[in-house]
Design a protein around this nucleic acid. Sequence first.
RNA 1: GGUGAGGUGGGUGAGUGGCUUAAACCACCAGUUUGCUAAACUGGCGUACGGGAGACUGUACCGCGGGUUCGAAUCCCGCCCUCACCGCCA
Length: 426
Amino acid sequence: MLQVPFIRANRERVIASLKTRNYPEDELNIVDEIIAVDDSRKSTQASLDELLAKNNQLSKSIGALYKEGKREEAEQMKSAVAALKDNTKNLQDQLQKAVNQLEELLLKVPNTVHPSVPNGNSDADNEVHQDWGKALPELGEDALPHWDLAKKYNLIDFELGVKISGSGFPLFRGQGSKLQRALINFFLDEAHEAGYEEIIPPLLVNEASARGTGQLPDKEGQMYHAEKDDFYLIPTAEVPITNMLRDVILEESDFPIKLTGHTPCFRREAGAYGKDVRGLNRVHQFDKVEIVEVAHPDKSYEVLDRMLSHVESLLQKLELPYRILRLCGGDIGFTSALTFDFEVYSAAQKKWLEVSSVSNFETFQSNRLKLRYRDADRKTHLAHTLNGSALALARIVAAILENNQSPEGIVIPKALQAYTKFEIIS
RNA sequence: GGUGAGGUGGGUGAGUGGCUUAAACCACCAGUUUGCUAAACUGGCGUACGGGAGACUGUACCGCGGGUUCGAAUCCCGCCCUCACCGCCA
């Protein structure tokens, strides 16, 4: 959520940002609406405060009068206070209404995008920020897509997944499981090396946490909900890990906060059925290693750069062809100010697969989380939050299988061999 | 699932209707003193929304939401959460 003072001070910028995001032209006045509602909120608050102050003062005098034994005067004053009551109630209702209305409006306003975010309508308009600098691999005509390779080498059993749960729940087995586990350990070790503290968080979270990172109320349908106990299955480790810092006031010396964690991620992806759902391209459950940082506002874009380098180094070590996209206004997430997606080329499908998304949320999340820090003057400010996948497992597996297939079998990238303890799947 | 106890500031913890402006202690910050460290002393020390150039100042907040009252941390109702023990259990 944006802060109203920010909107007041940056009215033009907020409107420009909405335009970049292709916000409906006829709803751009939401910005002025917010300012107007906040104006009335303020004046109502002021009148109410004044009335309450008077009330408090009178009540105090009544107490004093009783002590002095002046009952009659006290009784008289009581009725004076009672006369103020109706008005107090009115103002309180009015204030509540304004606050609710303000909240409702604010929930509709997405984060203000970074100036570098390009215009565009869809993922087709994302800007290639960087690529791996080499030619893309070309496989022969007989190259197999990963779902066929998985079957051939008995790595993943999609049918059993369907039997046990349903479509989108792959079952890994044998060397397939080992490859998966090797990747998780590799990613966690690399994150540790880069200074991230490892977390194993709860996988079911309460409503307050889902709200804190913004999954609720806007992305309600994306999460599995265990209704009986009112828990949500996490769609990403970002949710529990970032919520570690909910309602926290940090000292400046606590920066930088760097956390990482591996978790399964659960996504309903309702209505996402279409051409890209085969194999591991889109599943309801997958594993991911996430990196989360909380940064001083002056430093958050440096942090974002370092996170990009970290993710990039993982892909380089895995020798996978990749490119980094700067998401355009039409594709960037509601809560993000600037997002870079990493895509890996899956050479048999001849498709780019998204394997990471690295974002700076600036204060958008921390406002809802109430995650603040104290500056040298002991004043509190919202901190900046960032996160990124490092990396999402299922699709990385897909790319490794396809790109590394050979007549002898699937060659394990060198960096992973210490983890898999085998060099080839055959 | 059952029974009981409890939720007060960064922590411990007092507070059963107005002498609370939430005590006291610890922690923390600044200063004084002292070769250094420590100790002692003095002062400061919550969050949010307003007003004011500022010193300041108003309001709300004692788990959350209602209610009673001129006045609620305190009384009443509902909810949430935590802890302990029992049962079940990896």
